[in-house]
Design a binder for these strands. Structure first.
Lengths: 170, 170
DNA sequence: TCCCCACATTCCTAAAGTGACATGTCGAAA
DNA sequence: TTTCGACATGTCACTTTAGGAATGTGGGGA
């Protein structure tokens, strides 16, 4: 049920349409909680039905601008403080590691080398986001920086691990 | 489609029943790719239908012992070497960070402190697994150690981040 | 003026994951 | 000898995620 709260969280920053939210997702949450457009619109409908958000204004082209309600805000806060995050995150990257004995050693090493490279790429990408949140004083920027730092630190750890792991084989 | 390959991977180590696999999941893949019993039995049925595994023997209490077939092994190898791992992993823990401005600063700090504590716990748990794979010479142990090291390294990075992040607020 | 692109929403199908429920059997200990 | 826990498989209903298709509108540049 996190998509629901992702939407509430973005609407807590200010009113937006489904289309706006899609773009917002792309620039802010896409590395943390990707969502497709169909998922998003469906969720907006459900949130509106539940009274957690309302259509505050309608614009051209059928645009509906949603606003978070008091109930929505309360639910968001409850989720942040009272609901404990899921323990396990699935990683098919790591799952493959368990089964690396099934391929030839040079293939296993190539896999880990590739993961190091992919992670390096990802780090570059995250670094490229930094300028956009560096100086922001809005809430999403301030906490976006902290989230970015998470990505950077874990990315570095992952890259170092992949390099180490490659050398562990044989 | 990773559960399918998780099952193939475990069966590549040797024949097992659904019940065996459940226990194997619990001690090896549960931190990487959790699965419920219903999911597992359903997947076994589908894999058998697809000819990637077969029922090699039937035992007491309706026990069916599955073996991986040549096709299954080929599919597993293909998945390891040719299919690239998913880029983004969802984290509702990190998602909350984006919205921490919606709660009072002391609550935000408490959240991050809690995450540091939870991660420390998780690290302890991972350390407790180490003895079980430390000396193993079987494939799952050898690569299990590498996967474990991943959990340890990323856990430490996450813990340090959470401590750093707590100090960033206010 | 016209046309294209960005804006904007809705519907659909399929696969994957969650959690509870249902059902039955074998074997060892009391 | 009984009985209880571990063994063992399966079904159902529901939610979430993925991805694509269909449809239409408004406004700014050629």
């Amino acid at each position: 049920m996190s998509l629901r709260h992702a939407v509430l969280g973005l609407l807590a920053e200010g009113p937006a349409s489904g289309y706006d939210l899609m773009k917002l997702f792309d620039v802010s949450l896409s590395n943390t909680w990707p969502a497709t457009q169909s998922q998003l619109y469906a969720e907006l409908g459900k949130l509106a039905d539940a009274g957690l958000i309302t259509v505050a204004a309608e614009g051209p082209r059928g645009r509906k601008e949603y606003t978070i309600t008091e109930e929505g805000l309360a639910e968001l806060r409850r989720w942040i403080t009272d609901v404990e995050p899921t323990r396990v995150t699935r990683s098919d990257m790591l799952l493959r590691v368990f089964f690396l004995a099934q391929v030839r050693p040079e293939q296993a090493r190539a896999y880990l080398r590739e993961q190091a490279a992919v992670t390096a790429e990802r780090l570059k990408h995250l670094e490229s986001i930094r300028p956009f949140v560096e100086d922001g004083t809005d809430d999403l920027s301030r906490y976006g920086r902290i989230a970015l730092e998470y990505g950077l630190r874990l990315g570095r750890a992952q890259q170092e691990w992949a390099e180490w792991a490659e050398n562990q084989i044989q």
